[in-house]
Amino acid sequence: YHCKTPDCKGWCFFEDDVNEFTCPVCFHVNCLLCKAIHEQMNC
Rank of each mutant, 00 (worst) to 15 (best):
C31H: 04
C34P: 09
K4W: 11
Y1M: 13
C43W: 03
P24A: 03
Q40Y: 06
V29G: 03
H28V: 06
E20D: 05
A36R: 12
D7M: 08
Y1E: 06
V25I: 11
E39K: 12
H2S: 11
F21Y: 11
E39D: 13
M41G: 15
H38L: 00
W11M: 15
N30T: 03
C43E: 04
F14W: 14
D7A: 10
P24T: 06
E15I: 08
C12L: 05
V25S: 07
Y1R: 01
A36H: 15
C23A: 01
K9P: 14
D7F: 07
F21D: 08
V25A: 10
I37R: 09
M41H: 14
C43P: 08
C43K: 05
D17C: 08
D7P: 03
W11R: 13
E20R: 07
N30V: 00
F14S: 09
V25M: 06
E20T: 10
K9M: 10
E15W: 05
C3H: 00
C23M: 00
L33M: 13
H38I: 01
M41R: 15
Y1C: 04
Q40S: 13
T5M: 13
F13K: 11
C3T: 00
P6V: 07
N19L: 11
C23L: 00
D7I: 01
L32A: 07
E20S: 08
K4V: 14
Q40D: 14
E20G: 04
N19Q: 14
F21L: 04
C26R: 02
F14G: 15
D16F: 14
H28G: 10
L33H: 11
L33D: 09
A36L: 03
P6G: 04
K9C: 09
E20M: 10
C12N: 02
K4T: 09
E20C: 06
V29R: 10
N19C: 10
T5G: 06
D16C: 08
Y1H: 07
V25D: 09
C23E: 01
K4A: 13
C26M: 00
F27S: 10
E15S: 07
F21S: 14
C12R: 08
L32N: 10
M41Y: 09
D16P: 15
F27D: 12
I37H: 08
F21C: 08
C23Q: 03
L33W: 07
K4G: 08
V29I: 04
V25K: 10
L33R: 15
W11E: 15
N42I: 07
I37K: 08
C3W: 01
M41S: 15
G10H: 05
Q40A: 11
N30E: 00
W11K: 13
W11T: 15
H38D: 04
K9Q: 12
G10Y: 05
V25R: 07
H38R: 02
C31E: 03
C26V: 00
H2A: 06
N42C: 12
T5D: 05
F14L: 15
F13L: 12
F21K: 06
W11H: 14
F14E: 11
F27M: 09
K4Y: 11
K9W: 10
C3F: 00
E20K: 08
N42W: 11
K9V: 13
H2W: 07
K35W: 05
L32G: 05
I37V: 13
Q40T: 14
H28L: 05
F27A: 11
K4D: 04
D17K: 14
L33G: 10
T22W: 04
D16G: 11
Q40G: 15
P6F: 04
D17L: 07
K4R: 13
E20W: 09
F21T: 13
T5Y: 09
C34R: 02
H38V: 01
A36F: 01
F27N: 14
V18M: 10
H28P: 00
F27K: 15
T22P: 05
C31N: 03
K9N: 08
L33T: 12
C34L: 03
F21R: 05
C3P: 00
C43L: 04
D17Q: 15
H38F: 03
P24R: 05
D17T: 11
E39V: 09
N30I: 01
C12E: 01
V18E: 13
N30C: 01
H38W: 00
E15G: 08
N42K: 11
P6T: 08
